[in-house]
Write a protein that binds this DNA or RNA. Structure first.
Lengths: 141, 141
DNA sequence: TAAAAATAGTTAGCTAGACAACTAAAATTA
DNA sequence: TAATTTTAGTTGTCTAGCTAACTATTTTTA
């Protein structure tokens, strides 16, 4: 049966995480998607980074990053500045509005994380990471 | 860091599974998506089922199922017959072409499954299922 | 240095997931 | 039985993921 399949359960869990997180953000009236938050987070950790770097970190392709970056820009959370050394590149940084958002999001994101991972022992925590990693490596080659 | 986060790893693993599977199907010249295959599979296991049932099994909403069913119909893999007892419902079944596809897909799908799960012990198999289940339950209420 | 190849990012077109709003039929209930 | 509510499915709109094809720079190499 499909629903007993590990693949199915992984995909379903991923979807439920996104749904739960998105609902929490919406309930706080925060105008950002979970995926956009991930992008914002990478920029916050690496000021003046570019889209290629974000794609590498999040393992997403160029068009996906391009569109999410544009959304964040349109919403005023980031600044796009054309790189002076390489005009193909755009240096991304967090705007003041973005800084405020990130600050306000901190406890909310942590709450989302804790909600799903409650009652997970450190042992289980390590185990699932290592198993997921094994599956990813199996599929890589 | 994001990429050390369990949520991120679950989502990433789900994406890699889909990508790997889709590539294999494409390399066999099979015109179906992984998601469409899941729908086909549910119909195959439950002849004359309806879209609501499929949605329950796959935990997807009505519009998503509706569109995937239409794709499968357009491709000729299933038959949609309006239910005589309840004209709101559409009874779905596998066409001859669909039966052939399912037959041909069997070993390919199994190969995809084994590829990712190779080197996973029965113990790990059980463990990851139970942890994923725990996370899902945590998010449910 | 001129031509070719690589790189950063965008645009277009498709499927899927999510939500809201809708149609039409069936079941409830007043 | 007439009015209300529920149910099955569809349509529209948005975001995201993926592929392919594109522009415009920058780097390589012949």
């Amino acid at each position: 049966m499909i629903y007993d399949n590990i693949y199915f359960q992984i995909e379903l869990t991923a979807r439920k995480i996104r749904q739960y997180g998105q609902n929490i953000l919406r309930s706080h009236g925060i105008d950002i998607t979970i995926e956009q938050w991930l992008v914002l987070n990478v920029i916050n950790d690496n000021e003046a980074t570019n889209q290629i770097y974000i794609g590498e970190k999040l393992v997403k392709d160029k068009p996906t990053i391009s569109r999410m970056v544009n959304q964040l820009d349109k919403k005023g959370f980031i600044l796009k500045i054309s790189s002076s050394s390489d005009s193909r590149q755009v240096a991304l940084s967090i705007s003041k509005k973005g800084k405020t958002l990130i600050h306000n999001l901190q406890p909310i994101i942590e709450g989302i994380r804790l909600k799903g991972l409650q009652e997970l022992s450190e042992q289980e925590n390590q185990t699932i990471k290592s198993i997921l990693n094994k599956i990813q490596k199996n599929l890589d080659n």
